[in-house]
């Protein structure tokens, strides 16, 4: 049943986010630390249980697959509710800081990737 996949996905997300909140609180932060990452690892582990791998073509898998395909529309909705006006009108210092931070990180991507791929 597709609902089982949706329920599994929701349970993994909730569990991960809760762990992330606890981790943040343990570190004295008001931020979620790695919640989504934990949730993803949990989902990967539970859908790859030895002997009962869950594929996207199974009814249960289709419940997860659907939300995976809804990802881009949700990101478009996220883009449409960003405070773009504040970003554009935030002043020169904010713009320069944001732009340079992005350029510096772009420049480092190939450097670190080549380290990772070195045998």
């Amino acid at each position: 049943m597709p609902i089982l996949g949706v329920a599994l996905l929701a349970a993994c997300t909730l569990a991960g986010l809760f762990v992330g909140d606890l981790l943040g609180a343990a570190l004295g932060l008001e931020a979620n630390v790695g919640g989504v990452g934990v949730a993803m690892l949990l989902l990967i582990a539970l859908t790859n249980l030895p002997g009962r791998r869950l594929g996207p073509e199974t009814p249960t898998g289709s419940g997860v697959q659907f939300w995976s395909m809804m990802y881009i529309p949700i990101i478009v909705a996220m883009a449409a509710r960003q405070n773009v006006f504040a970003a554009v009108s935030g002043g020169v210092m904010a713009a320069v800081a944001g732009v340079l931070a992005v350029l510096a990180a772009f420049a480092l991507v190939p450097v670190l990737s080549s380290w990772a791929q070195r045998p």
């Binding site: 996905l9 929701a10 993994c12 991960g16 990967i44 859908t47 997860v64 939300w67 995976s68 809804m70």
Partner: peptide, 8 residues
């Protein structure tokens, strides 16, 4: 929710 789903 959707980001976690992409891990499938």
């Amino acid at each position: 929710f959707a980001i976690v789903a992409t891990a499938f």
